[in-house]
């Protein structure tokens, strides 16, 4: 939204940069807390790798990056056609 429009229209929650900053201000430290919490929580694991420090965090991050890169650079070139392809 341009600044001109903002005068007339209400400014909503995330139109204020401060709120976005505050959100990230909670989000990034929370990621750290989740890693440190491993030291406190008693974990029963079935597979040995589940007990490695940060296993789930690393897996989630890597899996999603791999997913997006594969979808963008492998799948999309293979399957994407014009919107009216089937017309």
């Amino acid at each position: 939204m341009g600044e001109g429009g903002a005068k007339k229209e209400r400014r909503y929650l995330f139109d204020k940069p401060g709120n976005v900053r505050r959100l990230f201000g909670v989000y990034y430290p929370w990621l750290g807390v989740l890693l440190l919490a491993e030291l406190l929580v008693d974990r029963h694991v079935i597979f040995p790798w589940e007990g490695w420090p940060g296993f789930y965090a690393a897996f989630g991050f890597v899996a999603c990056v791999a997913l997006v890169l594969a979808a963008k650079y492998v799948l999309r070139p293979l399957v994407m056609r014009k919107e009216d392809y089937y017309e």
């Binding site: 989740l34 929580v41 974990r43 694991v45 589940e50 789930y56 989630g60 890597v62 997006v68």
Partner: peptide
């Protein structure tokens, strides 16, 4: 263990999304 493992998985997936969007790599 369940709660922590699942929370890590999900929040670090969201970190991947956030970084990919911010860096413009997200398709």
């Amino acid at each position: 263990g369940h709660v922590l493992g699942q929370s890590q998985l999900l929040f670090y997936s969201s970190l991947a999304f956030t970084l990919l969007i911010l860096s413009g790599i997200y398709p």
